[in-house]
Design a protein around this nucleic acid. Sequence first.
DNA 1: ATGGGCATGTAACGAGTTACATGATTTT
DNA 2: AAAATCATGTAACTCGTTACATGCCCAT
Lengths: 199, 199
Amino acid sequence: MAPSPLAPASPTQTGHTLLGLLSFGSELSAYELKRWADNLRFFWSAPAMSQVYREVERLAEGGYVSSRRVVRDGTRETTVYRLTTAGESAVRAWLAASPGPPVLKHPVALRVFFGHLLDAADLRRAIDAHRAWCDRMLSDLEDLRRELGDDERWRNAKLVAGWGLGYYRGELAAVEGIGDVLDVGAVGAANDEGSADIA
Amino acid sequence: MAPSPLAPASPTQTGHTLLGLLSFGSELSAYELKRWADNLRFFWSAPAMSQVYREVERLAEGGYVSSRRVVRDGTRETTVYRLTTAGESAVRAWLAASPGPPVLKHPVALRVFFGHLLDAADLRRAIDAHRAWCDRMLSDLEDLRRELGDDERWRNAKLVAGWGLGYYRGELAAVEGIGDVLDVGAVGAANDEGSADIA
DNA sequence: ATGGGCATGTAACGAGTTACATGATTTT
DNA sequence: AAAATCATGTAACTCGTTACATGCCCAT
């Protein structure tokens, strides 16, 4: 087969996060990596399964991880990956670089912004859906933090979990505030103090 | 059946937001649309310039907007776009649909999570960068809200601006809290209450 | 008059997505 | 044993990006 363009391009964002997950020492399959990555979703939207499979393959090609086929759960064969020293250097370098701004796409805020294009019921539905989603995130995050236990290894994870809890609580309060304002149909009351102070 | 190449696929997310921006009635060029879109960046990360050019072209092909060439500022010719009734229906329908979860990629939270791969100075830098970024967002957002003035037309925009201010204030407080914890190198103090109560 | 920024694009690329396919394992 | 779910992938596509190109306009 034709060897792909010789430059084994440096890992993508997703690739780097996978390296990060492998930096905790375990040897993981693509599927397991995806499950781990899901636990970052509170502050880092999870990639698609297929993306994980492809990325981890590229990481192996680039020498950032080593791979081997193993048999698990009886007959089932799967590929598992382990971080190499090259891989660890790569994540470290990536993380040490300047962060760049967060990416944020907030469909509910967008709907409020374009409120003149929605009837009250639809907007209401969007708000409610967001509230439910926040509730879900909060309870999931609380569960996760509980699972982390007292292991010193997860000190940073728990720090981030605390950050996330604050964020989702604020978001919940804010969206409820917005809902109230819209219910009242109030205009003058829709100023800063209403929603900002809640959060 | 194979999707015909002739079928002008329905607009992308970015396409729909552009339609939304055009729903305020103005006839705008791609460049102007990009500038408008930048003002949504507080809750909806702005697309690249080139993306706006391409999307708006596709919108024109699909009949969601009408386009015409005009001369502006002397000799310069440019294409300006106006929302069609088809376009308005499309945004309305898009917005009325169920929101789907927000997309979030928070590089600083990620760095904290992977803190074991960074030395203290680099982590510190990331935290500081984020604080500066939040400051910037806050002042930009305050400016923007001021510019919106008392125009009834921007009622929803101001509502969202208030939401955003709350969010960025919370984020700022949280990141400062994290910074403090890291400075102290404290472990036991890094629990929930620290960051959650701040936000 | 020229150098820097604004305005208007084009081209190529890559990351990430949805949809599809398939065998194993568990549940009913 | 049928159904559902888990696990492991593959294929095709598209969105959005960075990088490039170019003419106009304004300040020094």
